[in-house]
Amino acid sequence: MSTAAPDRRTRRHQETIGEILDVAVELMGTEGVAALSLSAVARRLGMQPPSLYQYFPSKMAIYDALFQRGAELFLASQREAVAAATTDDVVELHLIGTTAFARWSMQNQVYSQLLFWRTIPGFEPSPEAFAPAQEALADLRAHLQAGVGASRLHPDAASDEGLAVFTSLTSGVLSQQLANEPDASFESGRFTRLFPLVLEMFYQHYAPTRGRNAG
């Protein structure tokens, strides 16, 4: 049974929500992520501030919607990059996914600040908004488990510790890049060029022979 197409009012409502979020991202890019003003958003859209509350009851609700949108875009970019890969090598696939993460983050710095750093005092994403980010972590664990299955990684790499180490390394490199050279391209970035080395260090630390000579 086919689902009925949304009526004109519903479509217009959804379009306005998209416009509000687009304007919010634009303003956050110029004024700062934490400096978002609902009044400024309303003015840019040519509406009265109270009208904005028909779509979002608070500024935190806009942040929540943007968190979900950003997480969905980030997840899609990684999956598309991996799906388009022409290699079956788990390490190369992992580098492709990591590169897609970094490239997307540099191209979408407002979303990156919202997703990966606590730039909004008091903001916590709702479970619905956080769900795509959890999917991204599940994808990462699957990549690491594939490395274990291919005898390229020790099982510890796919543990909670391994995920924490990997995300700390990659987020740290990205933080350095955005803090020091936010306008550089991924290819020319002084820190983003280090991603292959960071991945190599991770694979060396969690080599399949890890711990065999201990004791």
Rank of each mutant, 00 (worst) to 15 (best):
F166Y: 13
F101Q: 11
R69L: 15
V82G: 14
T167M: 03
Y63A: 10
F67C: 05
S159G: 05
A158P: 04
D139K: 07
G97C: 00
V110G: 00
E92R: 08
F130K: 10
E135R: 14
L137D: 08
D89Q: 14
A61M: 06
A136R: 11
Q107N: 13
Q107M: 06
F67N: 05
F130C: 06
G122Y: 07
S112Q: 07
F67S: 04
A81I: 10
Q109E: 03
F74M: 12
L140D: 04
A85G: 13
Y63F: 15
A157Y: 08
P127A: 02
L140F: 09
S112H: 07
D88A: 15
D156Y: 07
T87K: 10
L163G: 04
S126K: 03
L115G: 06
R103C: 07
I120D: 02
M60A: 09
L75H: 15
G70L: 08
E92D: 12
A71Y: 12
F123P: 00
D89K: 10
Q107C: 07
Q113W: 02
L169R: 08
L66E: 03
R69E: 15
Q78K: 15
A150E: 08
Q145Y: 03
R118H: 12
A146T: 02
G122H: 03
G149D: 15
S159A: 01
T167L: 06
E80Y: 09
D88G: 14
A61I: 02
A61G: 04
Q78N: 14
T119D: 05
L93R: 09
T87C: 15
T119L: 04
S151G: 11
A133G: 11
A76M: 15
D64F: 08
Q107R: 12
D156C: 08
L75C: 14
